[in-house]
């Protein structure tokens, strides 16, 4: 799949934003006044900024309101509804704690639950697609949740929780790569099933329908960079998992946590780029490419 910048920024930023909102919602840490203001500013900035970035890849963003209508069937619609709902609830909770110094914890819990559901819905936009076998797996939502909550914990300076969640994310990430590499084959789709001609012999794409490029190939048959996949996996894992864990092992002091955070975020960007670039869509079978 084509790793579009807007979608990478969307998933990384709003993942971290809703991760942080979850921690703030359950009152870890419990904040009041101006101190709280900066935390919420970061959380809403990331969550909202990510959502804004996602509109940059729409063909007709001015009709975005319509995207809230199909929550019964569509994960993308659910994601939008849940994002708005969690930001609204957490907004009220934040205003109460910043300006009135009063903390109404039940509201925070609701906001936290909605934030977790938002992260889950984001991951399901990808995990639901049978056409992309690598994504169509339980490791996808699991990894999105662990990374968002882990990154959120780093932002909330919850060092112990961050360490545990990032460690778990590392395990799931390794599993996702290990299982993901065989997933396409395990689903059993090949040029033979795609054309229905497999029973006649070996099927090979002889001629493409067009000599130029097209939307399908640009969007779904991205091959560039896959040859560096192994190197990028090492880089992503080192930045996203190993280095923050080492930092947290050295010290829980603010500057060290800040370094851990920066490295972690760089790592998630690399991981997310790979998440798209490595994912193969079955439509490539029609073109003899994957």
């Amino acid at each position: 799949m084509h790793p579009a910048g807007s979608v990478i920024v969307f998933t990384v930023a709003s993942g971290l934003g809703f991760g942080l909102l979850t921690w703030l919602g359950i009152g870890v840490p419990t904040l009041k006044g101006w101190h709280a203001f900066w935390y919420y500013a970061v959380a809403f900035g990331l969550a909202g900024g990510g959502l804004l970035a996602s509109t940059f890849h729409l063909g007709n963003p001015q009709r975005f309101l319509k995207a809230f209508s199909q929550w019964r069937s569509s994960w993308l619609s659910r994601e939008g509804c849940l994002a708005v709902a969690s930001m609204a609830v957490m907004g009220v909770f934040a205003i109460c704690s910043i300006f009135m110094g009063s903390i109404w914890q039940p509201l925070g819990y609701i906001g936290a639950a909605l934030s977790v559901l938002t992260i889950f819905a984001t991951s399901m936009i990808y995990a639901q697609l049978k056409t992309v076998p690598r994504w169509n797996h339980w490791t996808t939502p699991c990894l999105f949740l662990l990374l968002s909550l882990g990154g959120g914990a780093l932002l909330a300076l919850q060092t112990w929780s961050a360490g545990i969640l990032i460690g778990l994310a590392g395990v799931v990430q390794l599993l996702a790569w290990y299982l993901g590499d065989n997933q396409f084959k395990r689903r059993g789709s090949n040029t033979g099933t795609a054309t229905g001609l497999g029973f006649r012999g070996t099927v090979r794409s002889f001629e493409s329908p067009h000599t130029g490029n097209n939307y399908l190939l640009k969007e779904m048959v991205h091959k560039v960079g896959r040859k560096h996949a192994q190197k990028l996996r090492v880089i992503a894992f080192a930045l996203m998992i190993v280095s923050p864990l080492i930092c947290l092992f050295i010290s829980f002091s603010i500057p060290v946590v800040a370094v851990a955070l920066v490295l972690h975020i760089l790592g998630i960007f690399t991981q997310r780029w790979l998440f798209f670039a490595e994912a193969e869509h079955v439509v490539g079978l029609y073109y003899g490419k994957r």
């Binding site: 799949m1 890849h57 729409l58 063909g59 007709n60 963003p61 009709r63 975005f64 319509k66 995207a67 993308l76 936009i125 639901q128 697609l129 049978k130 056409t131 992309v132 789709s189 097209n214 939307y215 399908l216 969007e219 779904m220 869509h281 079955v282 439509v283 029609y286």
Partner: peptide
């Protein structure tokens, strides 16, 4: 008139039967 041009339906189709029009931004 209701399509926002998100492209998700083209991702969901196994057959490559949907193409986003690059001028109109609709599927």
């Amino acid at each position: 008139d209701a399509c926002i041009g998100c492209g998700l339906c083209a991702w969901a189709c196994p057959y490559g039967a949907r193409e986003m029009d690059q001028a109109a931004g609709v599927m």
